[in-house]
Amino acid sequence: MAVSTTIDKVAPDKTPDKTGPRRPVVYRSLSSDRKWALRWSYFFLVLFCIFFLMPPVYMLITSLKTSAEISADPATTNPWWVYKPTLENYVELLTSSQFLTFFKNSIIVAVSTVIITMLIAIPAAFSLARMKFWGSTTLATGVFLTYLVPDTLLFIPLFKMLATLRDWTGIELFNRWYVLLVIYPTLTVPFCTWIMIGYFASIPKELDEAAIIDGATWWQTLTKIFIPVALPGLIAATIFAFTVSWAQFLYPLAFTTSNDQLVLPVGIISSLIKGDVFNWGQIMTGALLGAAPPLIIYAFLMDYYIAGLTAGATKG
């Protein structure tokens, strides 16, 4: 007995206690970790999809209803259900010359804005990114700061400027769709220039040096090397410019008034809301039809757009 006690006493002293209190270790495989990460991702993705798709779905539902059904009492009918689906709203809008005029104006304005924006932004970005000249860095920052000023602050000074310009030149600038071609680029050019500066800057310097040694002029370097190499960025900028000018509401509201000069977003509101009478069915139809062109463009150029937005993250 005595012996065993001694051993009991001595043994722990000689071999230091390595066990001690421990946190239980749970070995989980990498794949099960990944599985859970995926489950959570899907959960939130689905949640956000539902949240963000709700309004367009409601628009679609409303556009398929008759006026009577839209104004039916929600206590007795389910507003999320179409009881008597009809294409009446679509037929009416698509056969009204007014809506088609808005649509045509919108397309002309958006496409022209994109062209004007690119013609200015690409050479601007190229010179700011590559031709080191006095003040180029400040100028590049200035371009970005311009973009940070909200357009709601700018439309009154712009209005004043255009009024002065009209008085000087005698060219009518108000209530004409083409005035938007002057105004929209003030929104799109800074941002597109900024995107393109980043894109051009990610092109290795040796590439233009090689081109210059090969005998290319600056212009040839831009058109034959930079534009093809930076095409994804160019497409991203194009989509941006198109979306901004397509969806712009405030400026056309302020600068154009008569029906033949309006673009789609303003046209729908001003022609389909009479006083306090809202023609909801047609408003929703118009909005859905108006959302189609950007959607189609996104669908075609989605891969490029994502490539464009993530460019610069890794050197490609």
């Binding site: 290795p204 040796e206 590439l207 040096e209 090689a210 081109a211 210059i212 040694i213 090969d214 005998g215 290319a216 090397i225 093809p228 190499v229 095409l231």
Partner: peptide, 20 residues
């Protein structure tokens, strides 16, 4: 004299091939 008129050719460390 600008590079293109010096009649030189250069090989760069990162090759600088035109990727497209």
């Amino acid at each position: 004299v600008p590079p293109k008129d010096r009649d030189i050719a250069m090989v760069f460390q990162n090759y600088a091939l035109y990727p497209h």
